Simulated scan of single mutants.
Amino acid sequence: MMNALVLQSDFGLEDGAVSAMKGVAHSVSKVIPIYDNTHDIPPFDIWAASYRLWQTVEYWPKGTVFVSVVDPGVGSNRKSVVVKTSNNQYVVTPDNGTLTHIDKKIGIQEKREIDEHLNRLPKSGASHTFHGRDIYAYTGARLAAGVIKFDEVGQLVSEEEIVSLPFQEAELTEGTIKGAIDILDVRFGNLWTNISREMFQQLQINYGDNVEISIENDSRQVYNNMMTFGRSFASIHTGEPIVYVNSLDNMAIAINQGSFAKAYNIGTGASWRITIRKNKA
């Protein structure tokens, strides 16, 4: 059975790297369906790669094979792996933290280390800098096309050995939610947090209510102000800030027709913390 192959990387589209990966996949099967998740992951940003996988994996059918290549340690002793998710999808990637969100949010059934003697593009053994083409695209295509089965990828690896980035869930205590800014809605500069809608609802905040938002980078406060909880951007005037529920059912912050991230120079990751409190006025 032929399954979809979905590629993501930090390669961009300015040169032929992505095309080379697709060419390798088509050399395995000329009819394999190949799609792009994104190739605009910021260079070397493993956290963003992990998040972008989680953002999309659950919307694809069972059997889909994802290849994620954000690999600053290429050529080192980091492992090359394929995991089977709890939803029976597959992710082919360096084991460098890219699987963090999949592991924490979706779950992993099995993990196998790629046997490069069997699953490597022929005549590519002298190259140690383009594993995205020579190992990941090749192995992913063979798996998606049914040339190999999952148990032919390589030996089983203990799930406890999965490399994980620092990961902290949001917390609700005494009417205050503390969370993290996980990622940006890049094109528009909106802040996507790890605070779920369900947790936010426990503050008993209704559409149109004001909430207090505080943002810190490590211990430095970057932003503190009141803003409206709105159903959509149409709930506020142009240039005003808003708290809303994003497409992943988590809470997000935006400026209507503006970039919140650029306006306040805000980044993402575990060091960027956000606090939400209900306005008591």
Rank of each mutant, 00 (worst) to 15 (best):
N3K: 14
L5C: 00
V6L: 10
V6E: 01
S9T: 14
D10P: 05
F11D: 01
E14C: 03
K22G: 00
K22C: 12
G23S: 09
V24S: 02
A25G: 04
A25W: 03
S27F: 00
V28Y: 01
K30D: 08
K30I: 02
I32K: 00
I32C: 01
I32R: 00
P33Q: 09
I34K: 01
T38E: 00
P42H: 08
P43H: 11
D45A: 09
I46R: 05
Y51N: 00
R52C: 13
R52P: 00
L53N: 11
Q55T: 10
V57W: 04
V57G: 02
Y59D: 10
T64G: 07
F66R: 13
S68R: 04
V69P: 02
D71V: 02
G73A: 12
G75T: 03
S80E: 04
V82C: 07
V83Y: 04
N88D: 15
Y90K: 02
V91Q: 00
V92R: 05
N96R: 04
T100W: 04
T100S: 06
H101A: 10
H101E: 10
I102Q: 00
I102R: 00
D103T: 08
K104G: 05
K105A: 06
I106V: 14
I108E: 02
I108W: 00
K111G: 00
K111E: 02
E116A: 06
L118T: 09
N119Q: 05
N119K: 02
R120P: 02
L121N: 04
L121Y: 05
K123P: 00
A126R: 07
S127I: 12
T129R: 03
G140M: 02
A145V: 08
G146F: 06
I148Q: 03
G154A: 08
E160D: 15
I162H: 10
P166I: 11
E169V: 13
E171N: 13
E174N: 15
G175S: 05
T176V: 15
K178N: 14
K178M: 13
A180E: 14
I183P: 00
D185H: 14
I195C: 12
S196L: 13
Q202W: 06
L203N: 12
N206K: 15
Y207D: 05
G208T: 04
D209E: 15
D209W: 13
D209N: 14
N210T: 12
E212V: 06
N217T: 09
D218I: 11
S219M: 05
Q221L: 13
Q221N: 08
Q221M: 13
Q221K: 14
N224L: 10
N224C: 07
N224R: 14
M226R: 15
M226A: 10
T228S: 09
F233A: 12
A234E: 11
S235M: 03
I236R: 08
P241I: 07
P241W: 06
Y244R: 08
V245A: 09
N246A: 12
S247W: 10
M251Q: 14
M251G: 11
M251R: 13
I253G: 07
I255Y: 11
K262Q: 15
Y264W: 15
G267T: 13
T268P: 10
S271N: 14
K278C: 09
K278T: 11
N279D: 14
A281H: 15
A281M: 12
